[in-house]
Design a protein around this nucleic acid. Structure first.
Length: 488
RNA sequence: GGCCCGUUCGUCUAGUGGUUAGGACGCCAGGUUCUCAUCCUGGUAACAGGAGUUCGAUUCUCCUACGGGCUACCA
């Protein structure tokens, strides 16, 4: 099945857009079909320089690669496929052709009304509690009048002539049977006075010409669906399947907005979220697999996805679960990949990490406990700089490390560890020695291990004492113990 | 105002006439552990309301309420 994602280059890629793209992509891949990317830049005023690149980069980051259409080829925007161009501003002649066809067949008519008149008309209608709709004034123009105005080059638009008595029904892939009455549908503008088509005309023409079989788009389009259906009918084309996905919502249930949330996918990338986590999260917002599986890779989603398990109601964009998924996916990463991922941020703060041959070993210790990559540097700080140890940290009531026993414990730690041979300096080796020490001197394990860990890291929490001691090595461990014992 | 869509724990959701209404996140408690995190166990918490159909409605129908989307020469 051929599906498409057709963003407007008006800025960053919205997370809702990413979810829509994901669903369309999954449907295409599941059926071994093609996923097409088309750029809808028919609004010249809103088009933003660089937006297309940005959107493509973000999709690539997410692992959603178009088979056809506008693609990123080694970092630059290019086009691929037989049904191009895939950028609407380059298809103006095509739209013009079909607009003329509609005009000739009497399905569309030119409208010369000024925006001032239109504004006034709507105001009046609203004042009378009527639905604001075009009053069809220009439809009553005689053929001669129209010709005269056209010849005089008067600015005008082309409007779709909605058959008022028609009842339009359609079965949406998500919402089921939908019904609209012709008289409640406005005579939509198809061609603007600047020669550009509106979304309504453009997408119908393109989806037909590009052989799109399924359109996945946001619910906000539902109310203009009858216009699109009529357009297909007037042009003598078979409409594609449509799947209107529910909206992503703010906490107050309004449409997800910049004011209340981070909506740019880029922001989530910058915060360090993994594409696996974001994709997993987005997939589950409004869709469920029908079983209790929560973790899905993109590949698994391709197999498991189906439109009939998409929710009809909107979903609040609550990122608590995203954070949990992020932790899950971090833990699933191969250690070397994880190390590679955090290395740059650690090196930035601690250049010494560049020469660290045991970086991976240290990274492994924090992989189980972190949620956000930017935390990595701080979590590894004590390896690359001497920790600031205070007596307050060394003492710990819960571990029963009292002020009075501290000097003795520190002394025991130093003398005991001093006696450990280099080849015994392993987690097992240290465990054996220190547990024996605790038993011999009748200390609880915590009474010995807390001061050790605290002296080595200078932190109230960190990986365990044994792991840190091993990663640090004997020399550094001894050095830190002796300087910490000065506080006692 | 009009048209269209929707409504199960705080959040994401399972459920299609008979269930102790299930799972996940969050939160709380306990356990593991030298700390924190992880991990494990348990707990908290929901069918918007009203009629109707039915022996029986979360499930079907209607109404109400509430929420949302659209209502541009924007998408």
């Amino acid at each position: 099945m051929r599906t498409r994602f057709a963003p407007s280059p008006t800025g960053f890629l919205h997370v809702g857009g990413l979810r829509t793209a994901l669903y369309a992509y999954l449907m295409a891949k599941q059926s071994k079909g093609e996923f097409i990317l088309r750029i809808e830049d028919t609004d010249q005023e809103r088009s933003v320089e660089g937006a297309t690149e940005n959107i493509l980069e973000v999709l690539q980051w997410a692992g959603i690669d178009p088979d056809e259409g506008v693609v990123l080829d080694q970092g630059t925007v290019s086009e691929k496929g037989e049904r191009g161009p895939y950028i609407q501003s380059q298809r103006l002649e095509i739209y013009k052709k079909y607009a003329n066809e509609l005009l000739e067949n009497g399905h569309a008519y030119p409208c010369f009304c000024s925006s001032e008149r239109l504004d006034q008309m709507r105001k009046d209608q609203q004042a009378h509690k009527q639905a604001p709709m075009y009053d069809r004034m220009c439809l009553s123009l005689s053929e001669e009048e129209v010709k005269k105005k056209l010849d005089a080059g008067e600015p005008h638009v082309l409007r779709l002539k909605i058959p008022q008595s028609e009842k339009i029904t359609f079965t949406d892939d998500i919402r089921g049977l939908l019904t609209f009455q012709g008289h409640t549908v406005d005579d939509q503008v198809l061609m603007k006075s600047d020669g550009f088509p509106t979304y309504h005309l453009a997408h119908v023409v393109d989806d037909h010409l590009m052989d799109i079989e399924l359109v996945v788009r946001g619910e906000e389009w539902l109310s203009s669906l009858p216009k699109h259906l009529l357009l297909f009918q007037c042009l003598g084309w078979k409409p594609p399947r449509y799947a209107h996905v529910p909206l992503l919502l703010n906490k107050d249930k309004s449409k997800l907005s910049k004011r209340q949330n981070s909506v740019a996918t880029r922001e989530y990338i910058d915060k360090g979220y993994l594409p696996e986590a974001l994709i997993n999260f987005l997939a589950l917002l409004g869709w469920n697999p029908g079983n209790t599986q929560e973790l899905f890779s993109l590949k698994e989603l391709i197999d498991a996805f189906s439109l009939d398990r998409i929710q009809k109601a909107g979903a609040i964009f609550d990122t608590d679960k995203l954070d949990w998924l992020q932790g899950q996916w971090i833990r699933k990463m191969p250690v070397d990949e994880f190390a590679q991922r955090i290395r740059p941020t650690v090196e930035e703060k601690y250049p010494a990490a560049k020469d660290d041959n045991d970086f991976e070993q240290k990274a492994a210790l924090i992989q189980e406990r972190m949620t956000f990559f930017p935390e990595a540097a701080e979590m590894l700080s004590y390896y690359y700089e001497k920790p600031t140890v205070t007596k307050d940290l060394l003492v710990n009531a819960k571990q029963k490390v009292a002020d009075e026993i501290l000097p003795k414990v520190m002394e025991l730690l130093i003398t005991t560890l001093e006696g450990v041979a280099e080849d015994q300096w392993t987690e097992e080796g240290l465990k054996e020695v220190l547990f024996a020490l605790a038993e011999e001197k009748d200390y609880k394990k915590g009474q010995i291990l807390w001061p050790l860990r605290a002296a080595l890291t200078g932190l109230p929490y960190s990986p365990g004492a044994f792991e840190v001691a091993v990663a640090l090595g004997k020399a550094k461990t001894m050095e830190r113990l002796s300087s910490a014992s000065a506080f006692t």
